[in-house]
């Protein structure tokens, strides 16, 4: 490059040049909606024991689940997208958990956190439900007793992957209806 002489005229551009008019982008509706959903998942924490404490740590500033568009806890199932079951579910609590799931609007996902929610864990006993997948369908299982916040975040990332790749028509598919039927859960429409 040549040396700029002090007495040479320099042209200064007034800001970035802009092409006026409305812009557009091409994509498929599926992908746009899936991306919107995945980046604003509203979780409903159903926390009953020590996994719930780890989940609280996951939400708090150190691990900060809000980074992934999950700022807003929904304590009403009607506005929630993701049911996070963290902790031991006794058989007596089972119908209540199922009712919470049924109150959620489609599309809905379920994250099972910890050994107890997955399989009953150490509580191999008459009073504890041996895994929540006996009463509601589960999308992602997070192992651990209790799992560390990193593991819970990993589970959430896997939920995001599912949400990002889910077809808009999945919830109307015969497979999905069959799945719901196998759990005795009514689907609308």
């Amino acid at each position: 490059m040549g040396k700029i002489e002090m007495n040479e005229k320099v042209e200064i551009v007034n800001g970035v040049e802009v092409i006026n008019g409305e812009g557009f982008q091409l994509s498929s509706l599926d992908k746009v909606i899936a991306s919107a959903r995945a980046n604003s998942v509203w979780p409903l924490p159903f926390a009953t024991s020590c996994c719930g404490i780890e989940y609280m740590a996951t939400m708090a500033s150190n691990y900060d689940l809000a980074r992934f568009g999950m700022e807003r806890m929904s304590f009403s199932p009607r506005q929630a997208d993701l049911l996070i079951v963290a902790g031991t579910i006794s058989k007596k609590l089972g119908p209540i958990l199922k009712q919470v799931y049924e109150q959620m609007a489609e599309p809905r996902w379920v994250l099972s956190v910890g050994a107890c929610a997955n399989t009953g864990g150490i509580f191999d006993t008459y009073s504890v439900l041996q895994g929540i997948d006996r009463i509601i369908p589960v999308d992602v299982y997070v192992p651990g007793c209790p799992p560390r916040p990193e593991q819970i975040i990993d589970g959430v990332m896997n939920i995001h992957k599912l949400v990002n790749h889910e077809s808009l028509r999945r919830r109307n598919s015969p497979e999905y209806k069959e799945l719901m039927k196998s759990y005795n859960i009514e689907v609308n429409g």
């Binding site: 058989k91 007596k92 009953g120 191999d124 006993t125 008459y126 009073s127 504890v128």
Partner: peptide
Amino acid sequence: LNEDSMDYFPMRKEYHLEDA
């Protein structure tokens, strides 16, 4: 404490502690 549909008394020693 137990679910209403339970049809036995679980702390009696003839029953196993594990979920049957």
